[in-house]
């Protein structure tokens, strides 16, 4: 299927079109750009929530519960579950799906596992294209589950409407470490595994972090135990409240603007910079400048 056919399939909400479009976005190339051009024109539709937190915090189990909750109100839900790839072999085990398999036959749910394929920062564009694919297919809620803690998390927070940070008690020290990183980004802070000791202490700490946050929005701290489905309704309410508090899709609009600038920069490089630098004129002049036979100023005469 080419970009036009895929896009038509997305508008008809066909699962196979969603699956093939995501693969195309992952592969990149001219067809992928053509699809992205079409996707960019589609209006905002989805509430996009990024779910992040340290490994083992229960992100996949929570996503499963959020899908369950959203389906109760008839919302169609798309899930993107990102797992890391090995820097050595490029291989990966994508295991988030296991926790959500009970939704596999629900026509209103689409789940896709993504490997970050060793992208350094580049993950963001592929992930955003995947979000737009699900949005074009009219999923009301899009959940993006991302890997552990680190640079990628911050990438994710830039392209979703609401960032949900999931933490668990009993990991004392890591909380300190997170303060300077991901803690600065969550719009809603969830404490999972509230059957473990140390919940009160963590809650107090998170509330402090929330109140120190600049801006109009004070992130709510919500207690949950995702494994048994406790606190999920209250968490969903907090997520909805955040979506309604901020101007619609403000974060994503900002991200798209930066993405546009970046895409334009790359197009300029391809069209003007690369041919010029490869030209004989530039190459010979550069050689002579290095050999001190011509002054550096002459380089600027090529502009």
């Amino acid at each position: 299927m080419n970009a036009q056919e895929l896009y038509a399939g997305l508008l008809e909400r066909r699962p196979v079109a969603v699956a093939k479009s995501i693969s195309l976005a992952e592969r990149g190339g001219a067809d992928s750009e053509a699809l992205f051009n079409l996707l960019f024109g589609a209006p905002f539709h989805s509430q996009v929530i990024g779910v992040t937190g340290p490994p083992g915090a229960g992100k996949s189990t929570l996503v499963d519960r959020l899908v369950e909750q959203a389906r109760k109100t008839g919302k169609r839900v798309g899930v993107l579950a990102v797992d890391p790839s090995s820097p050595l072999t490029g291989g990966s085990i994508l295991g988030d799906r296991v926790r959500m398999q009970r939704h596999a036959l629900d026509q209103g749910v689409f789940i896709r596992s993504l490997s970050n394929r060793g992208h350094l920062g580049g993950l963001s564009e592929v992930a955003y294209q995947c979000i737009r694919i699900l949005e074009a297919a009219q999923f009301d809620l899009v959940l993006v589950e991302s890997i552990g803690i680190g640079q990628n998390e911050i990438e994710i927070t830039r392209m979703v409407d609401t960032t949900l940070l999931v933490t668990i008690p009993g990991m004392g020290d890591y909380v300190q470490a997170m303060k300077a990183g991901v803690m600065e980004f969550g719009d809603v802070l969830a404490i999972n595994k509230c059957d473990l000791p140390g919940v009160g202490q963590l809650e107090k700490l998170l509330q402090d972090v929330a109140h120190d946050r600049a801006g109009d929005w004070t992130p709510p701290v919500v207690r949950i135990t995702a494994s048994v489905g406790e606190g999920i309704e209250a968490l969903m309410d907090a997520l909805d409240e955040h979506a309604q508090a901020a101007p619609a899709h403000a974060v994503r609009r900002h991200y798209e603007r930066q993405l546009l600038d970046e895409m334009f920069r790359r197009a300029l490089l391809r069209r003007y910079y690369e041919p010029l630098v490869k030209s004989e004129n530039y190459q010979s002049l550069a050689r002579e400048i290095i050999e001190r036979r011509r002054p550096l100023q002459e380089l600027w005469s090529l502009l």
Binding site: V16, V18, A19, G90
Partner: peptide, 24 residues
């Protein structure tokens, strides 16, 4: 170097086929 998607144990053929489609 493969991307391995784990679909879990004790699945039905229906779930496996649906997963294969979504995961392409």
């Amino acid at each position: 170097g493969f991307e391995v998607i784990f679909s879990g144990f004790k699945q039905t053929p229906e779930v496996v086929a649906a997963s294969a489609l979504q995961e392409d």
